[in-house]
Design a protein around this nucleic acid. Structure first.
Lengths: 194, 194, 194, 194
DNA sequence: AATGAATGAGTATTCATTCAT
DNA sequence: GATGAATGAATACTCATTCAT
């Protein structure tokens, strides 16, 4: 069956890893797979379609990291395991992270197709759910779950994107330490207990 | 006088806004200004030079927002005014914000020229300085100023980039509200008081 | 079948004739063949590749002229037939002559690819071989075959390039006469018999 | 007075030395002289005019090498000194040699202006004169002076252009040796004295 | 399901030259 | 005598895509 279809996807991803978004060119994909560039059109309507599929793939992998966190026993543990999973994904599959969170904004125009956008949002909903149950369990203060999730996501995403953009001088383990320290501050606040 | 030089800069910025980094093409800039594409080379050595100048301009404007915060009386006020300035800049000059924080990571290769990189880093130092003096004044808990600045920047940058990427459904004033609420949480913590 | 591939080669040669090396431009070739310039890239990797192929073609044709001289019976005849072949080639295919002997020096940088360089040198070896056997047969004085071949080649190449550069006022048959007279002088010397 | 005019000439020549014919660009000349490219047009009508002047300059230098040979006492010595001068010029000012003997053929189209062409031919006449008087003095066999001069020039020019095109593996002193050996052969012939 | 040929629009950049000052 | 601004044509090359086979 359509073995090639998957190899194209994989290859497009590899090319993105190596040369960034512009590295995904029909010709390059074709060359790497020892296949004519036009062959790709049997499997994907056009380049846009291919790129969307690459993003979809990355979202799927992200889901694979996040999901196991649900198996933890308490809301608190589920939340913390989720954070861990997020950090692991960002560092182990940092290009996928890019694909999900940076590429779409570079796509311009129409943005993502409905379906893909929903999948992408689903991962945020995952966080809202964790926050919600942490409030109910008393681990978090009662507040608007959506807003708090936003605060948490922003903090994590901000740290990660600064790190990935190489704007920070830290190495990976240094960054992991910073991440958790920073997360601790987020939980307990920056203010002096006057 | 070199009126055109500035118009090119402005136009390049606009084009970036509309079509992303690749939208900045010599031909497009020329067309939009009703000028031959080659005329640009009178004013900028090449495309790279033009892009760097665009970034430099954005950094300068950012500095213009931040600087007045220093005139406030107390460390606390200087810090808060700085946050306000950051938010204003992000929302009023969101194209510049992108240019400073997103474009450089897409530039690949050598990255920014030394000088520009330093200027860009200077704005982070501004934050570290504010944090430092807030610790000394007792407004913040004593801690590592660099790390805390990182937490704060990450939080702010995360929020803003999510908002600018249109991943949030809020309008501007809604976002301003969210920003300050979220900032409040950052100051006081998410945890329940034991 | 790849009819176009050969037509491009021919056309590039013609363009070289008319406007020199810089006359070989992808656009010009395309225009002349009523084909888009980019179509050429289907058949040659880039301009360099095209030029190398033009030279290779010329070398091949040159070989075709020279080779039959080997069928003559005596070393002397083989040598003379070789000279004739050289002259015929220079006059009948003067564009190729240029391509082989003038173009490469204008190529700058790396010069010719190994393989092509070797082929090009082979034709000189052909002359060395003829000289060698003429010495053994007693037709030439004993001497260093390489050096003598150099003398002969220089003389022939000098005459031809002067003629082709139109620095001489002679027509073709006049030049043929001059060539053989001059060759005669080379064989018998310019000096008065002491 | 027009100091600049001469500096432009010199600079154009230098640029030719470094980067070949295409290295002579109005912009480059201007840049090197810290002068606007358009300033050149005050002194030379256009690029063609500039290049012609460069050639004229080279011809003048060539003349400077050749002329002193006339001071020798006998026709034979004048001839040999002329050959020496030719060889020295070719090796010491090899790029000027190029400028005189190779560049014009790359110029295409109209070729050189009348005046320049005549000057260039004059150096050949110099050789014809030497040959003529060598015949009268008995150093050379009686023959058609023009044809014999052609033989000699062809031989010399052939050797030099092969050497300059780097088609020969010799170094300079090796080439000088080869030149005179080859010249010797030319004088005495290649044939066995049956 | 895949190929080879070809296209047309697009890319940055270089160059000789003109013109107003 | 010289400059700065600007032009228009040219260059090699890349890319996504279409079409006939």
């Amino acid at each position: 069956m359509s073995d090639l279809r998957e190899r194209i996807l994989e290859c497009a991803l590899d090319l993105y890893l190596e040369h960034g978004l512009k590295g995904i060119s029909m010709r390059h994909v074709g060359d790497k797979l020892r296949v004519s560039a036009t062959a790709i059109y049997r499997h994907y309507r056009n380049k846009e379609d291919l790129v969307h599929n690459v993003i979809g793939e990355a979202v799927k992998v992200f889901g694979g990291y996040l999901f196991p966190a649900l198996s933890a026993k308490t809301p608190e543990e589920r939340y913390l395991k989720g954070c861990e999973a997020y950090l692991d994904f960002a560092l182990e599959k940092s290009k996928y992270y890019d694909v999900i969170f940076i590429v779409p904004s570079q796509l311009g125009k129409e943005g993502l197709p409905e379906e893909l956008h929903r999948q992408s949002m689903a991962t945020f909903q995952f966080l809202v759910d964790r926050v919600q149950e942490c409030m109910e369990s008393g681990f978090f203060q009662k507040d608007d779950a959506f807003s708090v999730a936003m605060t948490i996501w922003a903090h994590g995403h901000g740290l990660v994107s600064i790190y990935l953009a190489k704007k920070s001088p830290l190495d990976e383990s240094g960054f992991r330490k910073l991440f958790w320290e920073s997360h601790q501050r987020l939980l307990h606040g920056l203010r002096s207990p006057a």
